[in-house]
């Protein structure tokens, strides 16, 4: 293995390790589909965005529906200039704030509903998000995607159920004016048993990691 590769692999493991210590939802709210984004999936998502596309370091990054801040904090650790975490839930934002202090990184936090989000100027380069899958509240995933493509000027990274692939692609290109919509890889998402309605101890579902390029307004 060459040295460059070694360095990157080290950093990937390091990032995953740092994220593993973060606080997660203490009292998850089912109506918001609050599931933690695990360190494994987060570190790979952010690494792909950074190493394959240069969309993280020296960029302004928004974590939409940031929850406890895992994705946004990972972006900050990888050298994003500014990270803004946006969520509707007070408890999650306070946890994200504590997590940022723990990691000694700066992250801006804003409490807002994605349906009413508008960030003026073309300041935001990249949106990263793990939106609700829309299983509890139909269309919630699409509200996030619409907002993300409106806010980002460079790229949107998002996770969606593999079973919704065609729908996501069609809607992004046709309704949300995306220039491109590409599945980068398929991942297994471990959902721990957080809620009473989960019958199995752990559910493993197939999700796609997407990269969207927003159209020019």
């Amino acid at each position: 293995m060459n040295r460059e590769k070694e360095r990157k692999r080290m950093k990937l493991k390091q990032l995953e390790g740092l994220l593993g210590d973060l606080d997660q939802f203490s009292d998850p709210k089912v109506e918001l589909e609050q599931y933690p984004t695990g360190p494994h999936i987060t570190s790979r998502m952010l690494y792909t965005a950074e190493n394959s596309f240069g969309d993280v370091s020296d960029r302004v990054v928004v974590d939409l529906g940031c929850g406890c801040g895992t994705l946004g904090l990972a972006a900050a650790l990888l050298g994003a200039d500014i990270v803004i975490g946006i969520d509707v839930d007070t408890d999650s934002l306070l946890t994200a704030s504590t997590n940022a202090e723990e990691l000694e990184v700066e992250i801006e936090l804003v409490q807002c509903d994605v349906k009413h989000l508008d960030l003026r100027g073309q300041v935001v380069d990249t949106v990263i998000m793990n939106p609700p899958f829309g299983t509890r509240k139909k269309g919630a995933d699409m509200d996030f995607l619409r907002a993300a493509l409106k806010v980002a000027s460079r790229a949107v990274y998002s996770l969606h159920k593999t079973s919704t692939r065609e729908h996501i692609k069609r809607t992004a290109l046709r309704d949300f004016n995306a220039k491109s919509a590409e599945v980068l890889c398929e991942l297994r998402y471990d959902l721990p048993q957080l809620y009473k309605f989960h019958r199995k101890k752990e559910v493993d579902i197939a999700v796609d990691l997407w990269r969207f390029v927003p159209g020019t307004a």
Binding site: I84, R120, G121
Partner: peptide
């Protein structure tokens, strides 16, 4: 909140 963020926010 820093002023960069303030510059992006508006009342909707």
């Amino acid at each position: 909140m820093r002023l960069l963020t303030h510059n992006m926010l508006s009342s909707n």
